[in-house]
Design a protein around this nucleic acid. Structure first.
Lengths: 191, 191
DNA sequence: TAGCTCATGTAAGGAGTTACATGATTGG
DNA sequence: CCAATCATGTAACTCCTTACATGAGCTA
């Protein structure tokens, strides 16, 4: 099988990015699997999703591999939790990943876009409702992201302390805003 | 496990979209597995990728399920190929998929964006080269997409005949153009 | 006749989702 | 005391990638 990659070719790959996200989250502070699971709901949820059934086994693998270690904490009478932190090796691995090139474009995998591909004619009656639905969806997303920016980055200090996170939030807001604008233009064209 | 989906929550899901893409491609004309494989390299490659090892088994499943049928063609002396076409059931299934709502946002899974998340400071020396690399990548992509538009949609008739495809190509060009503009602004800020 | 393209498969394994399973803690 | 949350796992399954495997047709 040809591996890739005429220009414009786009691959997804099987590179276990989740492990690096976990290392990255642990680089900020020691955390339990439960903490990490929640982080994917709010902290970094706009950019990556993972559930606990994927996280716990991966934590075990990372510990076996020497990238993280854990300390047992007891809450209350006997509830044990495992607080994980990076080893120097894990920190090195994280930094190596960040430093390595990212030369690949990722396919978007947007259902709506895919469906559009098979709409042959501008007169197709399904077109207008599809666009209206996406407008709603992406307008809501813009609002959500703006609210996130408000709460996560209320001050200039907050921005300076997590600059990259700020950048990608800004980028997501712009992307969604442009998406909305494009949809609005299509809705107008299709009157 | 909680299923989803605070606003801004984003899922990927396991809904076998590939089968619908195959049905969609077959709705345009009868094709072999090999033809479909090539279509993912050039026809629809900007929006979805699949390799023959995924396509051939899926074609078998779709035929078993009654969505497609095949006819054996002989090329030359004895090379058999299987030309697949939609059954009425398959066509109905395709149209049902297109008509059903697409209420979910898809996570972007962009490596660069992910790495940015873990860049804490605007002074991080890795930031500038990372942005420069992505600039190159996305500028190339804009060029590639514009060239595609040139070749696939040279005339207004071509646009009218595959309007949805035209729309998503336009959309991809805009998205990538805005991405480049954003990267340029970051590069300027970071001087 | 050698190399490339056409043509169709299977196998092995990793990534990700959904579901199953269990138990402790805390706050109303 | 009851419900929500905290906390950690395993099992089954689908999707997708990479690699293995085979053979025919075409063209220089």
């Amino acid at each position: 099988m040809k591996q890739t990659n005429e220009p414009g070719g786009v691959i997804i790959g099987q590179r276990n990015r989740l492990q690096y996200i976990i290392l990255g989250l642990l680089s900020q502070r020691a955390q339990t699997g439960y903490d990490l699971t929640r982080a994917f709901d709010h902290e970094i949820g706009e950019f990556w999703q993972a559930s606990h059934s994927q996280i716990y086994p991966l934590l075990q693998r990372l510990e076996t591999g020497g990238d993280i270690t854990h300390e047992d904490l007891i809450t209350g009478e006997k509830l044990a939790k495992k607080q994980y932190e990076l080893t120097p090796q894990g920190r090195t691995k994280l930094n190596a990943w960040i430093s390595e090139p990212s030369p690949e474009l990722t396919a978007t995998k947007d259902d709506f876009i895919l469906k559009l591909y098979f709409i042959k004619s501008a007169d197709d009656p399904r077109l207008a409702p599809m666009i209206a639905e996406q407008l709603q969806l992406h307008r809501d997303q813009v609002e959500h992201l703006q609210a996130r920016r408000q709460t996560v980055f209320p001050t200039d200090d907050a921005i300076q302390a997590a600059y990259g996170h700020y950048l990608i939030l800004e980028h997501a807001i712009e992307r969604e805003t442009h998406y909305v604008a494009w949809l609005e233009r299509q809705a107008a064209t299709n009157h």
